[in-house]
Design a protein around this nucleic acid. Structure first.
Length: 354
DNA sequence: AAGTCGGGGTC
DNA sequence: GACCCAGACTT
């Protein structure tokens, strides 16, 4: 029997029950696909449910404020996904009369939608025969067909696409694509795949040739950047200063405390001088001072070492030299989006749920 | 083609 | 500690 038919039959009885699988509403499919980019299903489910609850349709998302969307995304990472999602909702409202576009080309043109997501939405929501090639599919196909090229190369990608176009079920492309992904995440696992009980093991190149652990072939070098963050928590009674990140950098659009960044953490003895110099503070402006232990925050390509310096200030308005800062009450932490590093610090030291 | 963008699960 | 996740965008 054809591989596609075996996959779809397996999928019909073994598929995962997921909240976005109860509809073909392109908006719902779209939101789920963006949330799931580089994100495990289990990590994304609650974000999906809350997001759809808060922004049930294109209109509500298009009329939202960016900080609201970032707040809904808080903790999920890759925040450009949230900004692009909102911007695309605005584009759909203006250029497509609020109706989600129904051609692969138009879908691909939206911000934050690349070849994978365009294929997923096209096939699942509109029954169009386009491949949805994600990490699962690359792994499954490279093993089934014995593709030994570097999985980051264009040759590899071309071969995957050619094979998928050859075997895709054109009557149920959405089901076929999802079957391939579920098979990858439930059976053809990255490590210790379940080959013994796999219904495709006898026609799988990698299994019959004992190269399952070598496919797909990856050659990644891990360049990690070390960064040292000196955060200053300027506090006057229940008010603190927060600052918006606007640079082309991590956490764009999110809030944090006033920051001085180094590549190497300066000595603790220098912190107060650094602070007074940077924020033009006199000794008489400072009522109290305390240092936190270092916080170590790991990202995929960065190791951040952070120190938090709490400063009791007489007049918060005397703080100068910040671009997108604002003074908020600590009760209002709940309304601003913060990266995990800040979120954890606040929860621990202010005992607020943000 | 190589970097950059988060955070968390898994081995 | 390394790898990977329903990838996309920039350089």
């Amino acid at each position: 029997m054809a591989i596609s038919k075996l996959l779809v039959e397996w999928y019909n009885t073994n598929k995962r029950e997921l909240p976005w699988r109860e509809t073909q509403n392109p908006y719902i499919i779209w939101v789920s696909e963006i949330i799931l980019q580089q994100t495990r299903v289990n990590q994304g489910i609650n974000y999906f449910l809350n997001f759809i609850d808060q922004f049930p349709d294109i209109k509500s998302l298009a009329e939202s404020e960016e900080v609201e969307v970032l707040k809904a995304w808080e903790g999920l990472g890759y925040y450009s996904r949230a900004r692009n999602l909102r911007e695309s909702a605005i584009i759909i409202s203006k250029q497509y009369s609020g109706i989600f576009p129904d051609t692969y080309k138009d879908i691909l043109n939206l911000k934050g939608i690349g070849p994978y997501t365009a294929g997923a939405i096209s096939s699942i929501a509109f029954n169009l025969p386009y491949p949805a090639i994600d990490g699962n599919v690359k792994r499954v196909i490279s093993r089934l067909y014995g593709l030994k090229e570097d999985s980051a190369s264009s040759v590899f990608s071309k071969k995957i696409e050619t094979i998928i176009m050859d075997i895709i079920d054109k009557r149920e492309p959405g089901k076929f694509n999802q079957a391939l992904m579920d098979f990858g995440s439930l059976i053809c696992l990255p490590k210790n795949p379940l080959c013994k009980e796999c219904f495709l093991n006898d026609l799988c190149y990698a299994n019959t040739n004992q190269v399952v652990n070598e496919l797909p072939a990856t050659y990644r070098k891990n360049n990690k950047r070390d960064r040292a963050f000196l955060y200053f928590i300027f506090k006057e009674k229940d008010k603190v200063v927060i600052n918006k990140r606007t640079a082309q950098d991590i956490w764009k659009g999110m809030y944090e405390f006033p920051l001085i960044e180094y590549s190497i953490m300066p000595a603790e003895e220098e912190w107060v001088d650094i602070m007074q110099e940077r924020f033009q503070l006199k000794g008489s402006d400072i009522k109290g001072l305390s240092f936190s232990p270092f916080h170590y925050h790991k990202l995929s390509h960065q190791n951040i070492k952070a120190a938090f310096i709490q400063v009791e200030i007489k007049e918060l308005s005397s703080i100068t030299g910040l671009h997108d800062s604002r003074i908020i009450n600590i009760n209002d932490f709940v309304t601003f989006p913060f990266p995990r590093l800040i979120q954890k610090y606040v929860q621990h030291n202010f005992q607020y749920n943000i």
